[in-house]
Amino acid sequence: MTPSTILFDLDGTLLDTAPDMGEAANRVLAEFDLPPLTREQIYTHTSFGARGLLSAGFGEQAQHQDPVALRARFLHHYGDAICHGTQLYAGIDTLLDKLDQLRIPWGIVTNKPEALTHQLLAFFPRLQEARVIVGADTYAHAKPHPMPLLEAAKSLNCVPQQGLYVGDIENDILAARAANMGAAVAGWGYTGDQALVHNWKADHIFARPDQLSAILGS
């Protein structure tokens, strides 16, 4: 069945934000004279935000640091250079065009803070056309809690069971399940070990955006 509404995660689903997220983390690490994250580490941990990237960089030293202060430093650096290397994934434009042609409303539900989300989307006018944009702090809970998805669906007059959420990590699938929505894996994003993705029990696993487009009909 074609979904009545599609909601997307942002980092690792619509946008490859790893270069700028990784750079922000490396600037924090440099302040502590720690070595920078490797490209592999950055792409493994970007979907887990500041917490994931800084935990990877600090290792065992993380337990001796104030996580709130570290996150504040990360967000400061990230906000200063939020779109130097970030790019729209290939095929997303075409996918969104098809959704518009089929009059399927779409939105964005991310765990990036709302202010930073809008700051970043200013560089991508196509994504600003989303019918709803929900950040980590828009509501009282962030993913994997279902509230952000349920509130986004409500704003689009979408019955959750008729909607589809697309994300690149297991927490996205857990959030969709908890919201009683369809769940799809953006396999082109930061999914990590592909062998484990099938354990998430998503309804769909798409290797490319055009594979999602193909299920929408014409």
Rank of each mutant, 00 (worst) to 15 (best):
L10Y: 04
T13W: 02
L14M: 06
L14H: 02
D16I: 02
D16K: 05
T17C: 01
T17A: 04
P19A: 08
P19T: 12
A25F: 09
L29G: 03
A30H: 10
E31C: 04
D33M: 07
L34M: 07
P36H: 11
T38A: 01
E40R: 02
Q41D: 10
I42R: 07
I42Y: 08
G49T: 11
G52Q: 05
G52D: 03
G52L: 03
L54M: 05
L54P: 05
G57W: 08
A62N: 07
Q65V: 00
D66L: 04
R71L: 05
F74Q: 12
F74I: 11
H77V: 02
G79M: 03
G79S: 10
G79I: 05
G85K: 12
Q87S: 05
Y89M: 06
Y89E: 09
A90G: 11
A90D: 15
T94P: 00
L95Q: 07
L96M: 04
D97V: 02
K98Q: 14
L99K: 03
L102D: 03
I104F: 05
I108G: 03
V109I: 09
P113Q: 14
E114W: 13
H118W: 15
L121S: 09
F124D: 06
L127W: 09
Q128V: 00
E129F: 00
I133C: 10
A136P: 06
D137V: 08
T138W: 05
P144N: 09
M147N: 00
P148T: 03
L150W: 03
A152Q: 06
V159G: 00
I169M: 04
N171D: 08
D172M: 13
L174Y: 10
L174M: 11
A176Y: 12
R177C: 02
M181C: 04
A186L: 03
A186N: 02
W188A: 11
Y190Q: 01
L196H: 06
N199Q: 14
D203S: 07
D203W: 10
H204I: 06
I205L: 13
R208S: 12
Q211P: 01
Q211M: 14
L212R: 11
A214T: 10
A214R: 14
L216E: 09
